[in-house]
Amino acid sequence: MSADLLLRRQIGLCAAGFGAMLNLYACQPILPDLQRAFGVSPARAALTVTATAAAVALVAPVAGAVSDAFGRKPTIVAALVLVAVPSLACTLAPNLDILVGLRFLQGLFMPAAFAACLAYASEEWPAALRGRATTLYVTANIVGGFLGRVIGGVAAEWGDWHLAFLALGLVNLLAALVVAALLPRSTAAPATTPFGTALAAMPRHLGNPALLSAFTVGFAVLFCLVGVFTYVNYHLAAPPFGLSAADLSWLFGTYLVGVAILPLSGRWIDRLGPRRTILLSLAGSALGAGLALAPSLWVIAPALVLVCFGAFVCQAAATAFVGRSASHHRSAAAGLYLGFYYAGGAAGAFLPGFAFARLGWPGCVALVLVVEAAAALLVWSAWREPAPDLRLA
């Protein structure tokens, strides 16, 4: 592989990963603005996050078949453009219901980009470099998720929520242009699985207790992460903190901890096993959630780092468990895991709103701690026996 070709692949894949994640949770720092603009409850405003994550959860299990049918690069470019168009249309939304519908539409196109990017990384790099390519893509995802929130928050501070969606849509179009211009077309023929065969494998995966427990843990992990990072915005926008949308957006810099953790988490999983790793990570995340109840921003910010730390390592451990526990149709198992994972994100953006409405931020944190405790109990009991080719204890 020539240096020029490698550089084009790296830049193109980074732009794809960045653009794929840019809009998913970009509404979080502007939720208080949306709540005031439409005169709705926190949970109703948070539907702008729930709708997108729910759409991703619905489509994720079958997204891989799309890139197999249309090719990796065309799928990525089309998906990024089709995510950008509803974002631009959001600037014209006359009410919250239409805004939520457009956000749902965005989520329908994101999984195709996720699946195509991961497949491209595994097919177009030499075997010895595929791990680095995947890490590069996931890192671009994390940066895209962070900057999506920053772009939305800062744009809303300069103008209002309309400008936030306009800026996000334009940046997504720019990412699509970079991918179209720089990412080389696939040279490897994808290893395809008939669509009907992949669908037929899903009930068998759901009947596997070990896999079902991992899917449930994935649901719980993103439920807690999104629950904390959605409702902490309402908490910090209110007195005594009174943070603006731009201020809130920078709090999501805690997500960048994932960039540092990714290279380390694999070593921990290999050394401790997924079971021990995820139990320790859930404990760390729970500690962070508890510390986020402190009355000082100087404590809350590091607490959010700890919540992210635990969630990212949990995600890595659960993904590794799925990959090693599925004895057949691993892509179908991975798709199901992503479906459960993003369903957890959709639920985490909405359900804690009821606890927040009744008990405020402490009620939201209490619900998160209950879900994390339930996930830990499930891992402790269901993951005790070793999965194929892996010692869990």
Rank of each mutant, 00 (worst) to 15 (best):
E372I: 03
L392G: 07
R204N: 03
Q106D: 09
V299S: 04
A292S: 15
L351S: 01
A301Q: 03
P111M: 02
A45I: 01
L80W: 01
L183W: 12
V81A: 08
L183H: 06
L359T: 08
A37K: 03
S67H: 03
F252S: 07
P240H: 02
L306V: 13
P42W: 11
L306K: 10
G153E: 04
G39K: 10
D247H: 14
F38I: 08
I98W: 08
G353P: 00
A53Q: 14
R9M: 14
A246Y: 09
A286L: 08
V299T: 11
F109S: 09
A78L: 14
S296G: 09
M21I: 14
L291S: 04
L272D: 05
G39V: 11
S122C: 07
A176D: 10
A260D: 02
V379P: 03
G273N: 06
G348R: 04
E157P: 10
A191N: 09
T193K: 11
T197H: 09
L282T: 07
L129F: 05
A357F: 06
L99Q: 07
G153L: 10
A84G: 05
R391G: 10
R358E: 11
D68K: 02
L359R: 09
V179F: 08
H329V: 04
P352I: 01
H328A: 15
L173K: 02
A181C: 12
G345C: 06
F321G: 02
L96W: 04
F38A: 02
T254L: 03
V365I: 14
A116C: 06
L182A: 04
L367Q: 12
S296I: 03
T197K: 11
A15F: 14
